[in-house]
Simulated scan of single mutants.
Amino acid sequence: MKFDLDAFRIQPGKKPNLVKRPTCIEPVYRSKEEYRELLARHVTELSRLQQILYADNRYSLLLIFQAMDAAGKDSAIRHVMSGVNPQGCQVYSFKHPSPTELEHDFLWRSNCGLPERGRIGIFNRSYYEEVLIVRVHPEILERQNIPHDLTHNGKVWEHRYRSIVDHERHLHRNGTRIVKFFLHLSKEEQRKRFLERIDDPDKNWKFSTADIEERKFWDKYMDAYELCLQKTSTTDAPWYAVPADDKKNARLIVSRIVLDTLASLSLKYPESSPERRKELLDIRKRLENPENGK
């Protein structure tokens, strides 16, 4: 299955028009059975590449998921990464900053969760909240104890975009490959999913009054996302705006992008030296002869 990645990738410096950008496209699967088959293939291949990534131990992969509520971040992560060895994958869900985290710069808490070499790290929300929800609700910025002259000089957002881009370039230079997904959900589809959460007792826990309150700021969030995608999508750390009204389609698109990213790294298993091969062959001889292998 082939994807035109340019259809989803946000080009550096180009501001996307999220109102005109589709939240639903023609499915890449023809039936539920085909969807399950395609996803299973992706998961199997991802598991294989993750094992090589772990053994190769030169690169790490950081996947960042951002979206409006009910866009399917959790389910995308759960389905796409279902076959990955837990030892080689780390998932972090970022909630409201703690008092300790607020005593540091806005990138500090995410640094603690960066993946080690050979591993895949997943950020369910991230430091990007600092130019999204904080921009929509600037009163949050007032509670971060940053010097007044740094937050009221008209440059705070540009400075944060620059800090993020510089941070991600630093990570890229040190072997961390970064892929960022914006799951692009329509307001109408969010409404339907909220109703499902209310009607299904098993999903009531996912819904809160705050979710409805945030819908009032939908247009402001779209403006914030457009600026964020424009300012922080780079060649080394691209943003992909994935249509998210169809969860199955979104999962297939996300998994294909992850697979293509890993495949581009030319990963390989470490080669054994002649000395190591000789040592292994000696051990093999001992194991083949139980008397000698006591």
Results as ranks from 00 to 15, higher is better:
Arg143His: 10
Tyr59Asn: 05
His159Met: 09
Lys285Thr: 03
Ala71Pro: 02
Gly83Cys: 11
Pro16Arg: 07
Arg48Phe: 12
Glu271Leu: 05
Thr151Val: 14
Arg30Met: 05
Tyr59Ser: 05
Gly154Tyr: 07
Asn249Asp: 09
Lys248Trp: 05
Val179Arg: 11
Arg169Tyr: 03
Glu288Trp: 08
Ala250Lys: 03
Val91Ile: 14
Gly293Asp: 04
Lys285Ala: 11
Ser47His: 02
His148Asp: 15
Arg78Thr: 12
Ile64Thr: 03
His148Leu: 14
Leu18Trp: 04
His148Gly: 04
Phe194Tyr: 08
Leu227Asp: 14
Trp205Tyr: 10
Thr151Ser: 15
Arg256Trp: 02
His170Tyr: 11
Asn249His: 09
Phe65Ser: 05
Lys180Cys: 01
Arg30Leu: 06
Arg251Asn: 02
Asn17Ser: 12
Met222Leu: 15
Met222Val: 06
Ile133Pro: 01
Leu132Phe: 07
Val28Ser: 05
Ser60Lys: 08
Ser272Ile: 02
Leu62Ala: 05
Arg286Trp: 05
Ala263His: 03
Arg125Glu: 11
Gly118Ser: 14
Asp166Glu: 15
Tyr221Met: 07
Thr235Pro: 02
Arg286Asp: 01
Leu46Tyr: 01
Arg276Pro: 01
Lys95Leu: 14
Ile77Pro: 00
Glu142Gln: 13
Glu101Leu: 10
Cys24Thr: 15
Ala7Gln: 10
Gln144Leu: 14
Arg135Gln: 12
Lys231His: 15
Val165Glu: 12
Ala55His: 05
Ala76Pro: 01
Ile198Gln: 02
Ile10Thr: 06
Ala55Glu: 12
Leu49Asp: 05
Glu271Gly: 08
Gly121Cys: 10
Asp202Met: 02
Val91Phe: 09
Ala241Pro: 02
Val80Asn: 01
Tyr54Pro: 00
Asp56Glu: 13
Ile64Gly: 06
Phe194Lys: 00
Gln190Met: 07
Asp219Gly: 06
Arg41Phe: 06
Asp74Pro: 03
Tyr127Lys: 03
Pro22Ser: 07
Ser126Gly: 10
Glu168Cys: 09
Lys2Phe: 11
Glu158Trp: 10
Arg21Pro: 00
Lys2Arg: 09
Ser264Gln: 01
Leu49Pro: 00
Leu227Ala: 13
Pro238Asn: 10
Pro147Ile: 04
Phe94Ala: 04
Pro22Thr: 08
Leu287Phe: 11
Leu281Phe: 03
Leu267Ile: 03
Glu271Cys: 04
Leu46Lys: 00
Asn292Ile: 11
Asn292His: 09
Trp108Glu: 15
Glu142Tyr: 12
Asp56Asn: 13
Val28Cys: 06
Asp223Glu: 13
Glu196Thr: 07
Ile64Tyr: 10
Pro97Leu: 10
Pro22Gln: 06
Arg177Ser: 04
Leu280Asn: 02
Pro270Cys: 06
Met1Gly: 11
Arg48His: 12
Asp245Ile: 10
Asp199Gly: 00
Tyr128Asp: 13
Ser31Tyr: 00
Leu183Glu: 05
Gln66Gly: 03
Ser110Asp: 14
Ser186Phe: 13
Ser163Cys: 11
Leu141Glu: 04
Glu33His: 02
